[in-house]
Every structure is written in structure tokens, then in C-alpha cells.
Amino acid sequence: MPILIDTIDTALETLADVAPIAAILIGFQVLVLRRSVPNLRRVVAGFAYVLAGLTLFLVGLQEALFPLGETMAAQLTAAPLAGGGNVSWLDFGWVYAFAAAIGFATTVAEPALIAMSLKAEDVSGGAVRARGLRIAVAVGVAVGVALGAFRIVTGTPLPYYIIAGYFIVIVLTARCHKEIVPLAFDSGGVTTSTVTVPIVTALGLGLASAIPGRNPLLDGFGLIAFASLFPMISVMGYAMLSEWTQHRGRGAAPKEEAP
């Protein structure tokens, strides 16, 4: 059974990956802080769990997550490319739809995001709704991944998009309520979870190798960068919008704020 041999191979590699953390934590604890490791048994058990878990995850990554992204990219591009001749970027509508759907679906239920949005509601004194914030981040990721897919299809250079995006972030940072800025910056980082990253990476590489004239190395990467950039914009945008509607809606009939 090849999967078994894979698993054993991966386990050995994983051991080499996890060893440095163990060495660092225990080294500092014993040599610098000069304390014995508290609950040594639990720590050892924890390392064994980490080792076994990472091994299984990496095998599953090769067996399921990478193929998922790649196969979807290949299948979704097969129909528009089958006609032959000139294909314009408009023919890849389902590719953008899939990119947006996977971005939205994986983000909206992300536990780190749920925790963060509750904190944001707290900090802003209710001006920012937790639910609205979550949807804003998920929409940001969806737009980001779809735009990243569009970039791969058209083959336009990545730095232009990212630099333009950061420019928007800087402008919004200057105009936005100061309290929302750290949360907005944070929301860029929390969106890309361990399950999402491999699928989205494989999707990008699959697109870049399926579409003629694209080089996977030049065009295939960058989707994760889009997925971390756009939530910052959408969160600050949402905060400004909700502040504005609250301001404007004062005195008027109370209306529904978050979708």
C-alpha cells in the first residue's frame, strides 16, 4: 500500500521539522531560565501528538488538498479552452465564480475570524457588528481570490495589483477610525487557514499551467497575497460605511445595517 510507505517517509521528515522547536523551547527553559520543564510528561505527549498530526496532515495534503485545487482548475478551464482559437478572459466566468465561492466559504466560518469580530464589536462599542465584519472579511477574501484568478487568466503582473492595493490600504488607514486599524490589519492575517492555503495555492498553479501562455512560476503564485490584502480594505471600508450610515441614520427610521 503506497500510502503507508508515504506515511512512514513523511513521519521521518516531520521529525526533522519538529525537532528544532523542541530543541529551542527546552534549551531556553533549561539553559537560560534554569528551570526544569514543568509537566514533562504532558510536553512529551504533546510533541508526539504534534508529530503524528503533522504527518497525517502532510499525507492528506498530497492526497486530497493539492489534487482538489488542481483538478478544479483543470476541469473549470477545460470547457472554455476546448473551443480552441482565441479565448478572452470573459470565457472563464466559472473560474472566477469558483475562486470567489471557495474564498467566501472557507473564510466566513473561520474560528479565528469569529473570535476577532466579537472583539471588534466590543472595542467599537457596537458601531461595528460582529456579523457584518465577518461578512466584510469573507467578501474581501472572495473578491481577492477572484481578482487573483483574473490576474492569472490575463497574465498581468502581480506587483501592480499588490502595490495598488497597499496604496489603498494606506489611504484608508489615514482616513479610518484609529481603533479599527489594528483589527483591519489583523484580519488580513487570520483569513488564510491551514486548510485553505494548500487548496488556493494549488488552484492558482493549476490555472497557470492550464491556460496557454502562462508560466506557473511567474503567474501561479499570488492568490494568498490577494486573500490577505483585500480583507484589510473591505474591513476598513465596512467600518467607514457603518459609521457613515449610523451618522446619517440618526433620527431617521432605524434600518437594517448588516446584511
Binding site: F47, Y49, G53, L56, E63, V195
Partner: peptide, 25 residues
């Protein structure tokens, strides 16, 4: 599907290992 089961079980053990051993330390 088998691979997805590996991913789920693997990530769970991984997170559990972090919580019982590494994070407190």
C-alpha cells in the same frame, strides 16, 4: 476522501498536541 480524513485527523491531533504540550510551555 481518504486524504480529507487524514487532513481532519492530522490537524486535530496537531492542534491537540500544541494545546497540551507546547502552548503552556
Amino acid at each position: 476522501l481518504v486524504g480529507l480524513v487524514f487532513v481532519v485527523v492530522g490537524l486535530s491531533l496537531f492542534v491537540q498536541g500544541l494545546q497540551i504540550g507546547l502552548f503552556p510551555l
